[in-house]
Nucleic acid binder design. Structure first.
Length: 732
DNA sequence: ATACATACC
DNA sequence: TACTGGTATGTAT
């Protein structure tokens, strides 16, 4: 295990850059303490009850640490005068709303720190020890580790900026960045002045101006995402040749892949050119794992390093000169960390046997998933700063943090985090847990309090989101509205209704508006209570966003919908009240207001009458053979929505009874040849115009039929509104 | 189920 | 002159 323990450090990179961040110092023995007795590490696992690990925030950097973006942890920012930069940032931030909000957030984190310290104080040393059970599971993780380093992360160097530099090479030696109000990325000259991504533009300008003694000015190039997308597409295309099977782009400038299969062909056929390997790779090589295990470790490492070096050259050539950096390791997490080590235009291979030593030497902030806050908590509560600290105090971490968090942290400390995307389970993991959990759109603007204007912005956002959802063919169950006040406080409000999934922009808008109104109401209410004098403080908003989560495939929802509609109508009207288990889900909730079963029976009878007793497959009714009408089906209401409308009708029947059937619409339909009849009212429709049919069914369910059903049910006349009202009006 | 927090680029 | 983004996911209750 120890003979070929060797870390290949960037044998091909042009420049070996000096590092002063202390992460390169010789790491502790890499013999595996998880495997041996953990006696000596146990002692370090508990921070003494009365040990003072509080660092009073007297210096600027500490004060700034959680407040501002002052990462020196970024490539190209080593050895800069961080203190001076932080001081300028703090000063320039002044007392803006933003910085005040950041302070409030930071105070909350400090509160958490105190809370955790208190828990720690009350704990017995015993509780903070690593349990045998924990170490047992860690051994399990380690044993399941991939043996070969085949995971690769390719990260483009200062991507947006580099794209711009292609056409503006003169900016290379001046401090420059992409982005106006918000800096997206900066070049390496600007980074020396502390200018980095996610920094406000005016801060960046001030930094350069001041730190250059007023000699230089930050050049800000507006972003051009079309260009970046195009370059990104080229990069993806190149990288796909190295791993067509699991290559995945994480963002415009980051790609994950596994070169295991490529290595097999590379090693099996030494005479193959890249083109030949690429062709052969389309058929997944069998027994990749076994083959690579049979090769010596050294051979695999060399080959991997060589292949990735070629890949990077390939990318550079194909993009007209964009450089990238890469990490190669046993897991994608380690590869990701490694990709940053020799940036720019470099690569780092972490030998599997050196992985432990590698992660132990890392500052915890380097681990993807440990950000500003977690770093602060770990540092100030547990005195944990490095991967080694994290490992040694794993018992403490388990005691203090939620199980999921603790597991993540401890796995990170032994280099096993994100192991799901390691080669062995890459495919399965990414297929299985790949599905997106949510999708959202949000937009910032200058603080605005005009209600109508805000709502029109909300509608725009809903439309954008609906477009995205349609493109991805997903429908969402939970709708969340997010609003950021002028004070930068963020309020959210969510809603989800059983069995209902949304994609349609109008429905999205409706729900979002309702949620927004609720937020406003609550906010005004709160504010009125606080300021007894006058509650007229305006509700000023600087950001609106909508998010859909609990996503499912559009097609599966369609299938479900069809099934539901069919069941809704085909359940025997004489059956008992219980129905199928599905039906019960949909039917029970509103029994108080409406006798749903009775309603359903009546509607079924109507339906059956119209069909002359012949059973009709609802799928035949609600979809046509046209392939471009996919979306229309979504608009067909689920039973619960129908009931909601019935309920609404009942509640507001006197002034709000709806007749959505449009004369013009009817004429349009009559002018055409091919017709299909509505299952409820028997009116006929174009088969091609699915949207109209669905709109009609919707309207029909809302209007005539339901009204009649209710009338029959209630045995009394429901006054009919003379006024025509469109469906959309009904909803607003 | 939902409000809020954290992280990423 | 102005004056801090957008998207996704996890945690706490």
């Amino acid at each position: 295990m120890s003979n070929d323990r060797k870390r290949i450090i960037n044998p091909y990179a042009k420049e070996e850059r000096k590092r002063s961040d202390g992460n390169e110092k010789e790491s502790p023995s890499s013999t595996d303490p998880v495997m041996k007795s953990n006696k000596e590490t146990r002692d370090a696992g508990h921070v003494g009850n009365d040990q003072e690990i509080i660092h009073p925030e007297n210096n600027i950097s500490a004060q700034a640490s959680a407040l501002i973006i002052s990462a020196s942890d970024k490539a190209g920012m080593e050895g800069i005068d961080r203190k001076r930069i932080d001081a300028i940032i703090l000063r320039e931030s002044g007392n803006s709303q933003y910085i005040q909000s950041a302070r409030r957030r930071d105070e909350k984190v400090n509160g958490r720190i105190l809370q955790l310290r208190q828990r720690l104080k009350e704990a017995s040393p015993r509780e903070c020890e690593a349990t045998e059970e924990l170490d047992e599971s860690l051994r399990g993780y380690q044993q399941r580790q991939a043996i070969r380093a085949t995971c690769v992360v390719v990260d483009m160097d200062m991507f947006y900026m580099a794209c711009e530099l292609l056409s503006r090479p003169n900016l290379k030696n001046k401090p420059a960045c992409v982005g106006k109000e918000m800096i997206l990325t900066s070049n390496y000259v600007a980074r020396r002045y502390g200018v980095r991504s996610a920094m406000a533009g005016f801060i960046g300008r001030k930094l350069v101006k001041e730190l250059s003694g007023d000699k230089l000015k930050l050049i800000q190039v507006p972003s051009n995402f079309d260009l970046y997308k195009e370059k990104s597409r080229i990069v993806n295309e190149v990288i796909r040749e190295y791993d067509p099977h699991h290559m995945k782009s994480y963002s415009l400038d980051e790609v994950y892949l596994d070169i295991g299969p490529y290595l097999v062909l590379f090693l099996q056929h030494k005479d193959y050119t890249h083109e030949q390997i690429r062709e052969a790779l389309i058929i997944y090589p069998a027994e990749v794992m076994r083959f690579l295990q049979q090769q010596s470790s050294m051979v695999c490492l060399k080959a991997a390093d060589q292949v990735v070096f070629r890949l990077r050259q390939h990318v550079q050539k194909a993009t007209g000169g964009l450089t990238c950096s890469a990490g190669i390791a046993r897991t994608h997490t380690i590869a990701k960390i490694a990709s940053d080590k020799n940036k720019p235009n470099g690569q780092l291979l972490v030998d599997p046997v050196s992985t432990l030593a590698f992660v132990r030497a890392l500052s915890i902030r380097k681990f993807p998933g440990i950000g500003r806050v977690t770093e602060k908590l770990l540092q100030q509560v547990c005195d944990i700063h490095t991967g080694l600290d994290l490992y040694q105090k794993r018992g403490l971490v388990h005691f203090l943090f939620q199980p999921a968090t603790a597991e993540f942290l401890v796995k990170a400390s032994i280099g096993c985090s994100g192991e799901g995307s390691s080669f062995a389970s890459f495919g399965a993991e990414t297929e299985g847990s790949e599905h997106q959990k949510g999708i959202s759109r949000e937009r910032s603007f200058s603080p605005e309090s005009d209600w109508a204007l805000l709502n029109s912005r909300l509608e725009d956002i809903a439309r954008m989101l609906a477009t995205d959802m349609k493109r991805k063919s997903v429908v969402g169950h939970t709708i969340t509205l997010k609003a950021k006040l002028a004070s930068f406080d963020v309020l959210t409000r969510a809603q989800s209704k059983k069995g209902i999934y949304i994609q349609n922009p109008d429905e999205l808008t409706t729900i979002a508006s309702e949620l927004f109104a609720a937020i406003r109401a609550q906010h005004k209410n709160n504010h009125n209570k606080k300021c007894s004098k006058d509650g007229s403080s305006s509700f000023s908003i600087r950001l609106l966003g909508i998010r859909c989560s609990n996503l499912i495939e559009e097609s599966s929802y369609q299938a479900k919908q069809k099934g539901m509609i069919k069941r809704f109508f085909t359940v025997t009207p004489l059956g008992d009240n219980k129905g199928s288990e599905n039906e019960q889900n949909y039917m029970t909730k509103e029994n108080d207001e409406v006798n749903c079963t009775a309603t359903r029976k009546l509607m079924f009878n109507r339906y059956a009458k119209n069909q002359n007793g012949k059973e009709v497959n609802s799928a035949d009714i609600f979809s046509t053979n046209s392939s471009s009408t996919k979306s229309a089906v979504i608009n067909v209401d689920s039973p619960i929505n129908i009931k909601k409308k019935i309920k609404t009708d009942l509640n507001t029947q006197t002034e709000h009874t709806v007749d959505t059937y449009d004369v013009q619409q009817q004429q349009d339909e009559e002018a055409n040849e091919e017709h299909v009849s509505c299952p409820l009212c028997n009116r006929s429709f174009l088969t091609q115009n699915n949207a109209k049919l669905n709109a009609h069914i919707d309207a029909c369910l809302n209007g005539d039929t339901v009204r009649q059903v209710i009338r029959e049910q209630n045995c009394k006349e429901v006054p009919k509104s003379r006024k025509r009202q469109r469906l959309t009006d009904f909803w607003s």
